[in-house]
């Protein structure tokens, strides 16, 4: 099956700021891609090019095989977009907002009605469907915004930082809906600053920073790239711990802290087996044993030299340029 989203050597410049310098990635149909990066990395610019809001300066981008600059109408008919702001009309009710999008995406009236009811139910807005949106809480607006992107059953959905500003409950609720959408066949491109979110939702993750892809792969692969899965082994006495430390030094780099050993290895599962065999062969019974993977935060720090939330000055400038454009 061809990829649902194809991005090849995408370039975009705002004045003297190069926002994208040759970004490439693919999103297989019916999967979630997490586009991860700090503010100003180029995530939103990429989404805007893919949703036909911005024209690229170079490179190629396709959605379901339709070129975003040449076949922009077909692209717009195939996508749903929920951006960073809740782009809903405050002076309309939830129902009217969905009808507005339904009509503008040329969905037949009875289908709009059926679909609106389904979405309002799914996003827990039925009880408030006839209230003006200006009386809604931030979380309700955000939910309506995502619902509005789905009225015309788009096969490809773009979510630009969908959970920014949501409380933890709202965030997990939205995650559940996104998982449902993917289960039912939607392809999702999700940008996020939250590593936990990418980890939970995305099969593949593309990490971008300063307009360049700096890493790509599954969450597990990215962590493996870091090369230090940690095997933690605890013993009930110092003697066993000492013998085990000596024994396990051929598996990986061992540090001993009293009765607890940490073995840094590059291939977690294989090294785990080796550890078990070595300990078993020497008749050393550990009290606890755990394979701890580094978190995506560790990965991000290792890849970019700064954490996801931290924002170097150059990025702030880039972000302002993006907003101003």
């Amino acid at each position: 099956m061809p990829p649902a989203i194809l991005v090849e050597n995408l370039e975009k410049r705002f004045g003297d700021v190069q926002a994208l310098c040759g970004v490439s990635f693919e999103v297989p149909a019916q999967s979630v891609l997490g586009l991860l990066g700090p503010n100003g990395a180029g995530k939103t610019t990429t989404v805007r090019i893919l949703t036909t809001l911005l024209r690229p300066d170079g490179g190629r981008a396709e959605v379901l095989g339709h070129d975003v600059t040449r076949d922009d109408r077909l692209v717009r008919a195939s996508i749903g977009l929920a951006g960073q702001y809740a782009a809903v009309d405050e002076n309309l009710t939830a129902h009217e907002n969905l009808r507005l999008v339904g009509r503008l995406t040329h969905v037949e009236e009875p289908e709009i009605k059926r679909r609106s009811d389904e979405l309002l139910d799914r996003f827990d807005l039925l009880h408030a469907q006839n209230r003006l949106v200006r009386t809604y809480s931030g979380g309700m607006r955000r939910r309506l915004d995502v619902a509005a992107a789905l009225v015309h059953r788009p096969p490809v959905l773009f979510l630009d930082e969908p959970t920014t500003g949501l409380d933890p409950q709202g965030r997990t609720d939205l995650w559940a809906v996104i998982e449902d959408l993917v289960d039912s066949g939607t392809t999702v491109l999700l940008t996020t600053q939250y590593l936990e979110e990418a980890d939970r939702l995305a099969r593949n993750i593309v990490v971008i920073d300063h307009g360049t892809v700096i890493a790509e792969g599954t969450s597990a692969q990215l962590k493996a790239r870091l090369g230090s899965t940690v095997i933690e082994v605890g013993f009930s006495d110092d003697e066993s711990a000492k013998s085990a430390a000596e024994l396990l030094s051929r598996v990986g780099a061992v540090t001993r802290d009293g009765r607890c050993l940490r073995v840094s290895v590059s291939d977690g599962a294989k090294s785990m087996l080796e550890t078990v065999r070595a300990l078993d062969g020497a008749n050393l019974a550990p009290a606890t044993m755990a394979l701890r993977e580094p978190t995506l935060d560790d990965v991000f720090l290792a890849l970019t030299g700064h954490t996801a939330e931290e924002q170097p000055e150059a990025d702030e400038k880039r972000e302002r340029e993006e907003e101003a454009s």
Binding site: R115, L119, L150, R153, V177, D183, G185
Partner: peptide, 12 residues
């Protein structure tokens, strides 16, 4: 939120 399935997307 309710947990009902959501109508599949229109692939064509």
């Amino acid at each position: 939120m309710t947990t009902g399935a959501i109508t599949a997307p229109d692939l064509v």
